[in-house]
Amino acid sequence: MSREFKLLTGRVITLKELRQSATYEGLLEGLPTVEKNKGLIQRLLSDRSLKPYRVDPILLPAVERPIELPPEHSYPFGTPSALPAVTVVARFTSHTPTLSGTGDASGLVVVWFQEQFAFPPAEDIASQLQSLDWERHAGNFEY
């Protein structure tokens, strides 16, 4: 079953694929840091499998939470900070191409972070999805 979203522009997009995973699944020891988080996001966004429409995926702004340590403890491996617990990768399509292109339809992969495994997304994520600049970011394709 697909899920439709109406963008503020009036365009309707349909969720075609949803992947959720634990953000820090591979972190075996230590703390997440600002530096590790940047690397995690860069690797995620450069994943070729997230470019089925020949355009880069977009990242909805993530809120990092500083990890407070007691004043007598320092962390030598960076600035401790955590992204939300769940990484979400969603693939959307629209039945029409973008205004500046040709093709049968258009598509876009959107990445975000949230605290729980769940769908539909939280209200703040849903409002960001509705505000997507589809014309700027989506890629056109033919059936």
Score class of each variant (00 low, 15 high):
residue 1 M to V: 15
residue 1 M to D: 11
residue 1 M to Q: 15
residue 2 S to R: 12
residue 2 S to K: 13
residue 3 R to T: 14
residue 5 F to D: 02
residue 7 L to E: 02
residue 8 L to P: 06
residue 8 L to F: 12
residue 9 T to W: 14
residue 10 G to P: 06
residue 10 G to L: 11
residue 10 G to I: 12
residue 12 V to S: 10
residue 13 I to P: 00
residue 13 I to N: 02
residue 13 I to W: 02
residue 14 T to S: 06
residue 14 T to A: 03
residue 14 T to N: 01
residue 15 L to D: 00
residue 15 L to E: 01
residue 16 K to M: 14
residue 16 K to D: 06
residue 16 K to F: 10
residue 16 K to R: 13
residue 18 L to V: 14
residue 18 L to Q: 07
residue 20 Q to F: 07
residue 21 S to C: 13
residue 21 S to N: 14
residue 22 A to H: 08
residue 23 T to K: 01
residue 23 T to Y: 07
residue 23 T to D: 02
residue 24 Y to N: 04
residue 24 Y to S: 05
residue 25 E to T: 14
residue 26 G to E: 15
residue 27 L to K: 08
residue 27 L to Q: 05
residue 28 L to D: 09
residue 30 G to H: 06
residue 31 L to K: 06
residue 32 P to D: 01
residue 32 P to E: 01
residue 33 T to P: 03
residue 34 V to P: 07
residue 35 E to S: 10
residue 36 K to A: 11
residue 37 N to I: 07
residue 37 N to S: 02
residue 38 K to W: 09
residue 38 K to Q: 11
residue 38 K to H: 12
residue 40 L to Q: 03
residue 43 R to E: 13
residue 49 S to E: 12
residue 49 S to C: 12
residue 50 L to H: 03
residue 50 L to Q: 05
residue 51 K to M: 14
residue 52 P to L: 08
residue 52 P to G: 08
residue 52 P to H: 09
residue 57 P to S: 08
residue 57 P to V: 06
residue 60 L to H: 04
residue 61 P to I: 13
residue 66 P to W: 09
residue 67 I to F: 10
residue 67 I to D: 02
residue 68 E to Q: 14
residue 69 L to H: 08
residue 69 L to R: 09
residue 69 L to K: 03
residue 71 P to M: 07
residue 72 E to D: 06
residue 73 H to I: 13
residue 74 S to M: 14
residue 74 S to K: 15
residue 76 P to R: 07
residue 80 P to K: 06
residue 80 P to Y: 05
residue 82 A to K: 04
residue 84 P to I: 10
residue 85 A to E: 04
residue 87 T to I: 14
residue 87 T to G: 04
residue 88 V to N: 09
residue 88 V to E: 00
residue 89 V to S: 03
residue 89 V to A: 07
residue 91 R to T: 15
residue 91 R to V: 11
residue 92 F to E: 01
residue 96 T to K: 07
residue 98 T to K: 04
residue 99 L to A: 14
residue 101 G to S: 05
residue 101 G to T: 01
residue 105 A to H: 08
residue 111 V to E: 01
residue 111 V to Y: 00
residue 114 Q to A: 10
residue 115 E to G: 05
residue 115 E to R: 04
residue 117 F to C: 10
residue 118 A to W: 11
residue 119 F to W: 15
residue 119 F to S: 04
residue 121 P to L: 05
residue 122 A to G: 06
residue 122 A to V: 13
residue 127 S to G: 04
residue 127 S to M: 12
residue 128 Q to H: 08
residue 128 Q to G: 05
residue 129 L to S: 02
residue 131 S to N: 09
residue 131 S to I: 05
residue 131 S to W: 13
residue 133 D to F: 04
residue 133 D to I: 10
residue 134 W to S: 01
residue 135 E to T: 13
residue 136 R to T: 15
residue 137 H to W: 04
residue 137 H to A: 09
residue 137 H to Q: 11
residue 138 A to F: 00
residue 140 N to F: 08
residue 140 N to G: 04
residue 141 F to P: 02
residue 142 E to W: 15
residue 142 E to K: 14
residue 143 Y to M: 00
residue 143 Y to G: 00
residue 143 Y to P: 00
residue 143 Y to S: 00
residue 143 Y to C: 01
